[in-house]
Design a protein around this nucleic acid. Structure first.
Lengths: 224, 224
DNA sequence: ATCATAATCTAAATTAAATTAGAATATCAA
DNA sequence: TTGATATTCTAATTTAATTTAGATTATGAT
């Protein structure tokens, strides 16, 4: 009840927000329990990524974050809100990473290069760097339908980005006209997403996997 | 406690098994509550396929089967046993369908043909025909880790079948030698499995999707 | 028609979480 | 140092499901 809550909603970067000392009228200035909130969020992503939705208790998350199940409610309205925040940060993280890498390519880059970078970035971000991204992959299919519905638009935004990439590639004559781009897009993302289910670090590098995927998609595997 | 149980374990086809009237010594002869068991199993597959693990209650399944949550325990030890049976039947069904179709090909068939048929069969079986297959796809990633572990070998058997197909294709010179077959296999199955998440009947035929997948895999999408 | 046992139903017990409440503690401004 | 408020802890409550138990009804053999 007498909680802070809504204040913390915003996000992951903990924007600096000391208030100038005398601006009353405003809502009371914020302290930085933000650190704790972040710790909980990180812990949630980590545990969800590792164990999936069905195997994760709030108490597991609390323990991982060095606090208690009950305490989580100081920072999140509910288990759902926590899950959804993890989900959201997962997609937006991948999206931004992919877009940044693609835009960092030199102006003359071919679409093949762009798509290859996109695949590689998505893959490596998901596999190696970011518990939020991993958690998002795992969780999205596991989570109750209602939550999934509330998040579909975040996914769609990312999907649209890929759609534009592929359309560009076709316009540039780098993809045959008889290819159904929607199907292609979903096949590529499917192959990437599935990787998480089997990839174990060590044997093959993420780069190798990404490269083979790009090669397969563009050139196929047929000999001769 | 005074249940029947273990007797029903076997499977889905309800083997005929009237006893010859006078063979005592044997455990008491079986009646056909098998029909009910099957009804429950079908209902479970249907509901699990539609709503996923987290959204399915035993009471939902019971209702779909025209019985009651409590009654399920006459036929299954636990919710887990029910889930696992659905899971198992899901994989073996797809496996058998794929193998049958591939083996039904004329003797001279190329591996490209074999693989195309395999993709198409897996896809259409999963998408259109069989709630067990659909449920298996959905559930496998959603189910608690312990269950998944107990089922990994069933999946592995199916995976090995694909592995052999791809190795055959390579030996026959239909796949380039620089392709990592494990990665390829997982990419193909990933693309197929993901389809379930987005496919809506009507717009595109399953055959179209399968064909594009096969084309992409063998020839790639690059123009010229 | 009767009896034994199979099959089903109903309601209660159990279980395992999430959630709430409120006490205890820390922090920080005056 | 003190008081106010923010934060954290602990334990109790709630909730929603699975599971058990036992009563009830159907079925098939004699």
């Amino acid at each position: 009840m007498g909680r802070v809550m809504a204040r913390h909603r915003t996000a992951a970067k903990a924007e600096a927000r000391r208030r100038a000392p005398g601006d009353a009228g405003e809502a009371p200035p914020l302290r930085k329990s933000e650190a704790t909130r972040l710790r909980i969020l990180d812990a949630a992503a980590r545990v969800f990524a590792r164990r999936g939705y069905a195997d994760t208790r709030l108490s597991d998350i609390a323990q991982e974050a060095g606090t208690f199940a009950g305490s989580i409610y100081y920072y999140f309205e509910s288990r759902e809100e926590l899950v959804e925040e993890v989900l959201r940060l997962g997609v937006t993280g991948v999206f931004e990473a992919v877009r940044d890498k693609v835009e960092a390519l030199p102006p003359g880059a071919s679409y093949r290069e762009k798509l290859t970078v996109a695949m590689e970035t998505h893959l490596s971000f998901t596999l190696a760097e970011n518990d939020f991204a991993t958690a998002n992959q795992r969780l999205f299919a596991q989570v109750p339908g209602e939550i999934r519905l509330r998040h579909i638009h975040v996914h769609r935004a990312y999907g649209n980005y890929w759609r534009r990439l592929l359309e560009g590639a076709r316009r540039a004559g780098e993809i045959r006209r008889d290819i159904d781009l929607s199907v292609l897009r979903l096949q590529i993302l499917g192959a990437i997403n599935w990787t998480m289910e089997w990839y174990k670090p060590g044997k093959r590098s993420i780069e190798q996997i990404a490269n083979q995927l790009a090669t397969t998609v563009f050139d196929g595997v047929a000999a001769a």
